[in-house]
C-alpha cells in the first residue's frame, strides 16, 4: 500500500498515517501478518519526523491493529478483540453519535443515511453479505 500525507491539513500527520493503515487493514488491502514499512523507512519516504510515524504505529499497536515483531518491524496483527464488548459498543456509539448529528445538520433523512451507509459498507467489505 502507498501511504500519502499532506501538510497544512486539519488532521495531523500521525492521524493521517494511522487512519490510512486502519482503512487498508479493514478493506483487506493489508492482510494479517503482512509487514509494513519500518518507522525509519516510512519517515524517509514521506520526508517527515520519525517520531510522527512512531506515534501512529504506537497507537495502532495499542489498538491491536499492528504488532511489533522484535527485529522484524511491524506486521498487521491477527484480528483479536482487545476490548470488551461493552467498550467496543461504547466506541462505536461515540462515532455513531457524531455521524448522526453531522448527517442531521447537513439535512439528510434517516433513510438516506442508512442507504448511504449500506452502499459504503458494500464498497468497503464486498465479501460480507449484508441484510
Amino acid at each position: 500500500m502507498q501511504i500519502r500525507i499532506s501538510v497544512g491539513n486539519p488532521q495531523s500527520i500521525y492521524r493521517q498515517i494511522a487512519d490510512q493503515i486502519r482503512r487498508a487493514v479493514v478493506t483487506g488491502e493489508l492482510s494479517v501478518g503482512e509487514a509494513i514499512p519500518s518507522v525509519r523507512q516510512l519517515a524517509k519516504e514521506l520526508v517527515i519526523n520519525p517520531n510522527t510515524v512512531a506515534k501512529a504505529y504506537g497507537e495502532l499497536t495499542r489498538d491491536g491493529v499492528l504488532e511489533g515483531q522484535p527485529g522484524r518491524g511491524y506486521i498487521v496483527a491477527n484480528r483479536k478483540n482487545i476490548y470488551t464488548k461493552t467498550e467496543r459498543l461504547r466506541r462505536l456509539d461515540q462515532v455513531l453519535d457524531s455521524l448522526v448529528s453531522e448527517a442531521i445538520t447537513l439535512g439528510f433523512s434517516g433513510d438516506e443515511l442508512l442507504e448511504r451507509l449500506s452502499k459504503r459498507l458494500e464498497k468497503l467489505l464486498p465479501d460480507q453479505s449484508l441484510p
Binding site: V7, G8, I13, R40, A43, K44, V47, I48, N49, P50, N51, T52
Partner: peptide, 27 residues
C-alpha cells in the same frame, strides 16, 4: 535534516517561516 537526526540522539533547533516544513520535520 531528517537524515542527520536518524539515530535519535542528535538535536536540531531551527528558526523558520515555512510552517509546512516545520510541521513535517519538527516534533
Amino acid at each position: 535534516l531528517l537524515d542527520f537526526c536518524d539515530g535519535g540522539t542528535k538535536t536540531i533547533l531551527l528558526s523558520s517561516h515555512l510552517l509546512d516544513d516545520v510541521e513535517r520535520v519538527a516534533d
